[in-house]
């Protein structure tokens, strides 16, 4: 059986700079003939959260600056590797235009803000979708130098629209329950995408300005899904359970600037504490995000 230890790994000396990788993605488009995923994973070793970036992320998303990393934070370290995998490995889809449809953050225990970590990203789960095909980029985080089960795991599911992939699309999984009722108003400023790009390094033009978003077919800039997900989690208040999973599904994108509504409901799952969240447009007509936090 092919476990993580038998998968070939390309180790990067440091987390890649995203600006350059994006340019590369624009200049070298994929031919899209081969629908195979890269077999290699990419990894950075012995890294830790940059203190300034961590503080900026916490401030922007509404987390207090704790001794432990906010549950979504390792995704930011892994995101550079995701982009590197998409651009430098033989990946079947172009980076620009991929739609983030689902994100999971999962920890077996909270990671220390100054803990040294190995971060690895691999691609898996290429499957047909009614609007194209989806692929899962899985980020695994382990204490530096340790093998075994990851202590943190992230799953980012991206949709490549218009791709034809052999097979019948699996029936859509049961959507996460979206709580109803009155919620909190979030007034999102026009520069939110730029500010999150400054923290995350994700300089995807979709989030930077109305002009760059228009070039990609949107009326205005979009809020970054990882920001919306992180802010939803931060809005739950206290720290998540020590072992926890936060899963979100992205529906309609949030255009900037805008005012949206965030709803939370406490919902036990199999006797364990859990919370459901949803982000909707102010008039309630559009669902932007549903999320579920559960203790493991």
């Amino acid at each position: 059986m092919a476990g993580p230890s038998t998968t070939p790994v390309r180790v990067l000396p440091r987390t890649p700079s995203l600006g350059r990788t994006y340019v590369r993605s624009l200049l070298a488009p994929r031919d899209g003939d081969a629908l195979d995923l890269p077999r290699r994973s990419v990894e950075v070793r012995d890294v830790r959260a940059d203190a300034g970036r961590l503080a900026a992320f916490a401030r922007l998303c509404g987390f207090p600056l704790r001794a432990e990393l906010p549950l979504p934070f390792p995704h930011l370290i892994g995101f550079g590797l995701q982009v590197d995998l998409l651009v430098r490995e033989p990946f079947p889809f172009r980076l620009l235009g991929l739609v983030h449809v689902r994100q999971e953050f999962e920890q077996q225990r909270p990671l220390g803000a100054d803990e040294r970590l190995d971060v690895r990203v691999r691609a898996t789960g290429l499957r047909p979708h009614r609007r194209g095909a989806t692929v899962d980029l899985v980020t695994e985080v382990r204490p530096a130098g340790q093998d075994g089960e990851p202590v943190w795991r992230g799953l980012s599911r991206y949709l490549a629209r218009g791709v034809t992939f052999p097979g019948t699309p699996a029936p859509a999984p049961a959507p996460l329950p979206a709580p109803e009722g009155p919620g909190a108003l979030w007034r999102l400023p026009a520069d939110l995408g730029r500010r999150f790009a400054g923290v995350s390094g994700d300089v995807n033009p979709l989030h930077l300005s109305a002009l760059t978003a228009k070039a990609l077919g949107f009326r205005r800039a979009l809020a970054h899904g990882v920001w919306t997900a992180s802010h939803s989690l931060a809005a739950l208040g206290g720290p998540p359970p020590a072992a926890a999973r936060f899963a979100v599904e992205f529906a309609a994108p949030v255009l900037l600037p805008s005012t949206v509504v965030h709803v939370v409901a406490e919902r036990e799952l199999a006797g364990r504490p859990g919370w459901s969240t949803a982000v909707r447009s102010r008039d309630g007509s559009r669902l932007h995000l549903t999320g579920r936090l559960e203790a493991l």
Binding site: A51, G52, L54, A55, A56, A58, P64, L65, R66, A67, P239
Partner: peptide
Amino acid sequence: AEASAQDLLVAAID
């Protein structure tokens, strides 16, 4: 330097 008074209070109570 990057922590607010509120962050510090949260850390102490935590």
